[in-house]
Amino acid sequence: NEEPLPEGWEIRYTREGVRYFVDHNTRTTTFKDPRNGKS
């Protein structure tokens, strides 16, 4: 039961299956979860 991502964020996966987060607001990507700060 995960809380929803902030507005404008999306979860994607690399070809290796590593989860990362896309911030469409700033057009950046990060491996850090914007909901809780954990990677």
Rank of each mutant, 00 (worst) to 15 (best):
R19E: 08
N1E: 14
D23R: 02
T29K: 15
G37S: 12
K38M: 14
N36V: 14
T26Y: 03
T14D: 07
F31G: 08
T28C: 15
E3T: 10
F31C: 15
P6S: 04
N36S: 13
G17L: 05
W9G: 00
Y13W: 11
Y13A: 04
G17I: 01
N25V: 10
F31T: 15
V18L: 12
D33Y: 01
S39Q: 13
T26R: 06
Y20K: 01
F31P: 08
F31Y: 10
G37I: 11
P34A: 00
T14V: 03
P34R: 00
P4W: 07
R15T: 13
V22I: 13
I11G: 03
S39D: 13
R27I: 06
R19Y: 05
S39C: 15
T28N: 09
R15L: 12
N25W: 07
N1W: 13
K38G: 13
P34H: 00
Y20E: 04
P4G: 10
T30D: 05
E3P: 10
G37L: 11
R12N: 06
Y20C: 07
P4L: 09
E7F: 09
P6H: 03
E16P: 04
K38E: 15
W9R: 00
Y20G: 01
R15V: 12
P6D: 05
G37A: 12
E16R: 14
V22G: 00
G37V: 13
W9C: 01
P34E: 01
D23K: 02
T30S: 11
T28P: 00
D23W: 02
G37R: 10
T30L: 03
E10H: 06
T26M: 05
H24A: 07
R19T: 07
F21T: 01
S39H: 13
N25Q: 08
F21M: 00
R19G: 04
H24D: 05
R12P: 00
K32S: 11
V18P: 02
R35L: 04
G8R: 04
T14C: 07
Y13G: 01
T28H: 07
G37E: 12
I11Q: 08
R35N: 04
E10T: 07
R35P: 03
I11L: 09
R27S: 14
G8L: 04
P6W: 04
R35M: 03
N36H: 11
L5M: 11
G17K: 06
N36E: 15
G8W: 04
G8C: 07
E3M: 13
E7I: 09
E10I: 05
F21G: 00
D33M: 00
E3I: 12
D23H: 08
Y20M: 06
Y13T: 07
W9T: 01
T30Y: 05
L5F: 06
T30I: 05
N1S: 12
R12A: 09
E10L: 04
Y13S: 05
Y20P: 00
D23V: 01
E10A: 06
V18H: 11
K32N: 15
E7K: 12
F31D: 13
T14W: 02
E2W: 10
F31S: 13
K38T: 14
T14Q: 02
V18E: 09
D33I: 00
P4K: 09
P6I: 03
R35D: 03
I11S: 06
G17F: 05
